[in-house]
Nucleic acid binder design. Structure first.
Lengths: 119, 119
DNA sequence: GACGTACTTTCCGGGTTGGTTAATTTCCTT
DNA sequence: AAGGAAATTAACCAACCCGGAAAGTACGTC
C-alpha cells in the first residue's frame, strides 16, 4: 500500500503548507508569474530569512519549483499538488452532501442499542 | 476589509485541521454518518484523549458539529468550510494554469533589468 | 448516594514552527 | 583580488502541536 501512503504524506505536507496566510499570499503572488525571493519578500513586513523558509516549505510540499540564474533563485508554481487537494476535497464533498442530517437517526440508534443491551 | 480577514483566518484553521491524516480519516468516517467519540476512536491505535483533541480541532475549524444525548456527544460533518477550501483551490488553480512556463521570460527580464541599470 | 460509562481537561515531555540577528555561500562586476 | 548583491544557513528563542497518563466532569442506573 505504498502508493496510498505516499499520497497521504503528500496531502499532509500540502495542507500544512497552505495553512498559512503568508504562504498563500506568496502563492497568489507567484500566480502572477515567477519571482525572486527578494521580489516575493517586498510586500511583507518580514525579514528575508523568514520568507526564504516559507519558500522552502512550499518547495518541499511541491507547490513551488525553483530555477537558477546567477545569484538569483527564481520561484515558479507547480500546480500538481493543488490538483491532489482539489481531488480530495471534491471527493469528500460529494460524500458529505450525501450524508445529510442523520444525527437524529444516530441518536435513536444509540437509544436502541442501550435498550437491547441494558446494564 | 473585515470580511476578507475572517475568511483568511478560517482558511488557516481549516487547512491546518486537514493537515493530519488522522483527522482526515475521522472526517472520512463521519462521511458515512454521525458517530460518537468512542466509535471514532475504535479503528485507531490512539488513546481516547488524543481522539477527543483531534475532534476538538475539527470542531473549532467548523468542520464538525456536535450533538448531545446523555453522556454521548455525537459528531456530525459540516460541509461549509470545505466549500471555502474548494472555492480557494479552484480560484487558484484557474490562475495558476494561466501562468504557464514564464520562467524563461522572467530570467530574461532580470537580465534586461541589469543591463538597463548596471552597477 | 454509589457506581459505571463517555468523554474532557490538565499537566508533562519531546519535537516542530515562525520569527529574529549574524555569519556564510555564491556569483557577478570591476 | 576586492566588493557587492541575492539568498541561504546557523544559532537562538518563544510558542505551539501531538502524544500519554491521570484526574475531573456529566449523565444514567442501581
Amino acid at each position: 500500500m505504498a502508493a496510498t501512503t505516499t499520497e497521504v504524506v503528500r496531502l499532509d505536507e500540502t495542507f500544512a503548507a497552505l495553512a498559512s496566510s503568508t504562504r498563500r499570499a506568496l502563492l497568489a503572488r507567484l500566480a502572477q508569474g515567477p519571482a525572486t525571493v527578494n521580489e516575493l519578500a517586498e510586500p511583507f513586513d518580514l525579514g528575508l530569512p523568514a520568507i526564504s523558509k516559507h519558500v522552502k516549505v512550499l518547495e518541499r510540499a511541491g507547490l513551488v519549483r525553483r530555477g537558477r540564474h546567477a545569484q538569483f533563485r527564481p520561484c515558479e508554481l507547480d500546480p500538481a499538488p493543488l490538483r491532489q487537494v482539489s481531488a480530495w476535497t471534491d471527493r469528500q464533498r460529494a460524500t458529505w452532501e450525501a450524508s445529510f442530517d442523520r444525527m437524529d437517526r444516530h441518536i435513536a440508534a444509540l437509544q436502541a442499542n442501550k435498550e437491547r443491551d441494558p446494564r
